[in-house]
């Protein structure tokens, strides 16, 4: 476990009021008739050396958030400050040298590696793009990194189709780390893998984090995976962060009704053995609302058992309810009706 004092160190990444709206076009003239608020006014920061987990259902905008942070998608509004530099205002050309320090590992290990390139070419490519290293140096680094991620140096002559999903994800990780970045976004890196392989890859990522002093943004829909790897966790719902807190606070003392529901939906084998589990609540029946037409006020109110009048009128703001623990819910802000607090 990393030092909790780390939480009071400097911020590596700061996300300020980030928004990403996708236009929805319709009609014969393909006019814009609305937009999907994939990421809607999200702010948070990531401390140097920590892992911030982002959990949420499919469609909650967590992958979009990661892509907008790296400017793989252009943000609609808001800033991303990375190592003190506002990268939202840079042109793609100015951004190129910055990309050296921030990398991404994608979910699908079959789609994220170019199948026409050998493993050596794949791992050396970031070096070709970003550095002037000689061919021999590049080969040495690629070989060293392959061994570091648990493959063999000789594997560099092989092609992605000769590897299993877990091995391919190791290749993706090697490719992301070859430039020695400070910050890595892990976009559901183990969701496509077998459970037995998931633990191996997760432990590899933890080891690499210690060795290379990496900062992770770890996106996943799997609460147990996030619990295993994160220092702090943010819960996303319909493009917004519902609750963000240090891991233990969030898993043992969740405040937002959505977080409570999510945690109670984790399937367990021994129901009574884990004292930390939240009391069971009925699983949600409704689907996540259409992000092109989100509910007014609090976006969660349509599925919230504790919703009251104010929730449909006013958007909740963040209330600090513990050290580094923020929740966006009317049940906890001072002006709110607290009679429903569970």
């Amino acid at each position: 476990m990393r030092n909790p004092a780390i939480a009071h160190q400097e911020k590596l990444v700061e996300v300020q009021q980030l928004k990403k709206y996708f236009p929805v076009k319709g009609g014969i003239l393909r006019r814009q008739i609305g937009h999907v608020k994939a990421v809607d006014d999200v702010s948070f920061h990531i401390y140097k050396g920590e892992t911030l987990g982002i959990v949420g259902e499919s469609g909650s905008g967590k992958s979009t958030l990661g892509r907008v942070m790296l400017r793989l998608l252009e943000p609609t509004e808001g800033n991303v400050i990375f190592e003190g530099q506002n990268i939202s205002t840079l042109t793609q050309r100015e951004l190129r040298p910055v990309r050296r320090s921030m990398q991404i590992v994608f979910q699908d290990p079959f789609a994220s590696l170019n199948s026409k390139m050998s493993v050596g070419e794949l791992i050396e490519e970031p070096l070709i793009v970003q550095t002037n290293l000689s061919k021999r140096k590049r080969k040495e680094q690629a070989a060293a990194l392959l061994e570091k991620v648990g493959l063999q140096a000789d594997d560099r002559h092989k092609y992605p189709h000769e590897f299993s999903g877990g091995q391919r994800q190791r290749i993706s990780i090697a490719r992301a780390l070859v430039l020695n970045p400070a910050f890595v976004i892990c976009d559901e890196p183990v969701s496509a893998l077998d459970v037995s392989i998931q633990a191996q890859v997760l432990n590899l990522m933890k080891d690499l984090q210690d060795d290379y002093r990496l900062t992770y943004l770890f996106i996943s829909h799997d609460l147990s995976v996030v619990k295993h790897i994160s220092d702090r966790v943010a819960v996303m719902y319909l493009g917004k962060i519902a609750e963000i807190a240090p891991k233990h606070a969030l898993y043992t003392n969740p405040h937002h009704p959505y977080t409570k529901k999510l945690l109670s939906s984790i399937p367990t084998i021994h129901t009574n053995s884990d004292k930390n589990t939240v009391p069971k609540q009925p699983v949600m029946h409704q689907d996540i609302p259409n992000p092109a037409n989100p509910p007014s006020g609090c976006v969660f109110r349509t599925r919230c058992p504790l919703a009251h009048d104010r929730c449909s009128i006013e958007q909740p703001t963040y209330t600090e309810i513990g050290p580094d623990h923020y929740v966006a819910c009317h049940l906890y802000d001072k002006g709110g009706d607290t009679s429903h607090t569970s």
């Binding site: 793989l72 991404i104 789609a111 994220s112 590696l113 170019n114």
Partner: peptide
Amino acid sequence: EQEFVLGARAIGATDRRIIFKHVIPN
């Protein structure tokens, strides 16, 4: 829209490199 093209952009590859090294071979 494939992830490996996004990945190439994430390492800072130029459009020319993406087109000739990643898109055309596929």
